[in-house]
Design a protein around this nucleic acid. Structure first.
Lengths: 228, 228
DNA sequence: ATAATAGTGTCTATTAGACAATATCCT
DNA sequence: AGGATATTGTCTAATAGACACTATTAT
């Protein structure tokens, strides 16, 4: 049957939670709204065009908004409350994209996007802090950010997702910083190292970090997952 | 701006993975197609109407297809490949709904739905078996079923989702059967009981099952989760 | 008494938390 | 040498796997 368009459908969009960890803090990218919602900030997003896949849509938005196309990303969840967007019924598929801090400078920022510190607040929502002021978030984006943090926390220690925040070579201290930023609490160094090493998740990569005023840390790399 | 419909959007649908566990086997509900895809089976689904929430859509489909509206359900993932539906670009949000085996008989079945055994196969897809023959699945529904099994396996032992397969009062053996069906492997009874009891997940509910030709099992109930 | 399943006890292997001690580099 | 962080070691607590054993019911 070709009555796919017999009913009126909601509009379909993709919203991106673009995260990075810098100086031990979890940062998300938000954009100022210049329409009815002026004064508020929102996650970068865009509509899904007919005939385009969700992944193509994500990459289109990444390219347009921050000039990167090859980031690690994964689907989070889909938000469909008819009242979530004051302009009309827009169903939005949220994606998590991760930008390694080492590439922060090369991400060309267009049209005023801003990195904000995020953390969980009450009532299942998240706060976005810029300096010491909290930015108002448009739509249901505070809820999307909160769900994102919970998802990340849930999978950070049994998946390899944390390494998406790091370059190919890293020190164990850097890995721990990423985990601490995501979990929002300090971890014990010996236990953390043991887990990574005993489980064969990372291996030494020969080289040693230099240039600090203290003992240099060994550099590690992720051990590729074996297929079955 | 009211140019939400300026572009042509994909159609938007919801597909349901309705699961139950019976006789130690994980079963999903599929429906025979009577259109171009006649001969194949598909998950129950329907379009999202403008102005209706995703949850309303799920409940509408549950009511129409199996006559139940109060099932436990949760969102799985969204599938958007433009080629996934031969009739056109349909983005589908998959939901998992769980029907306790104790309510199987009261679910009035309309228009030939069928319970099929499901299990993981190669290449990230799932097989649907009816008796000893495997049913062909339409669209990307074999992939959706596979993702569902993986999701369930991932959260079965740290969440309470397994109890949605059971009535309010149950024996520990019944809980174990659900877990074994989902994980696809046997579990050790003592360790399983300890986990449920030591963690305070379930508690004895006084009554004792009767009528078997062997020692009756104590009945338990889920301990409600505390809020914070 | 027997069959069949319910329920308990014990031992061991593994993993994580806590904290102390040692190693190495730059200035 | 001294400061600062890297790296290792040890002890303990908690958890899970494995398996043997006891308990209870209907027939």
């Amino acid at each position: 049957m070709s009555d796919l368009d017999a009913h009126r459908h909601p509009a379909l969009a993709v919203d991106l939670v673009i995260l990075t960890v810098q100086d031990g803090e979890l940062l998300a990218l938000v954009m100022p709204r210049d329409d009815i919602l002026a004064g508020a900030f929102a996650l970068p997003g865009g509509f899904v065009h007919h005939g385009q896949s969700l992944e193509q849509t994500v990459n289109r938005i990444l390219r347009d908004k921050i000039g990167h196309v090859d980031l690690t990303f994964e689907q989070l969840a889909t938000y469909g409350d008819p009242a979530r967007d004051p302009r009309g019924h827009v169903v939005s598929i949220a994606y998590l994209a991760i930008l390694p801090a080492s590439r922060l400078d090369t991400a060309r920022m267009v049209a005023g996007p801003q990195w904000v510190r995020i953390h969980l607040a009450t009532k299942g929502r998240a706060m976005a802090m810029s300096g010491s002021t909290s930015l108002p978030l448009a739509f249901d984006h505070a809820a999307i950010l909160a769900d994102t943090i919970r998802r990340l926390r849930g999978k950070i220690d049994y998946s390899h997702i944390g390494f998406a925040f790091l370059p190919a070579l890293f020190t164990l201290r850097q890995v721990q910083e990423v985990h601490e930023a995501i979990l929002g609490r300090p971890l014990l160094k010996p236990a953390f190292r043991r887990k990574l090493l005993d489980r064969g998740i990372v291996r030494e990569a020969g080289k040693t970090e230099r240039g600090n005023a203290f003992r240099p840390a060994a550099q590690y790399e992720l051990v590729p997952e074996e297929k079955e």
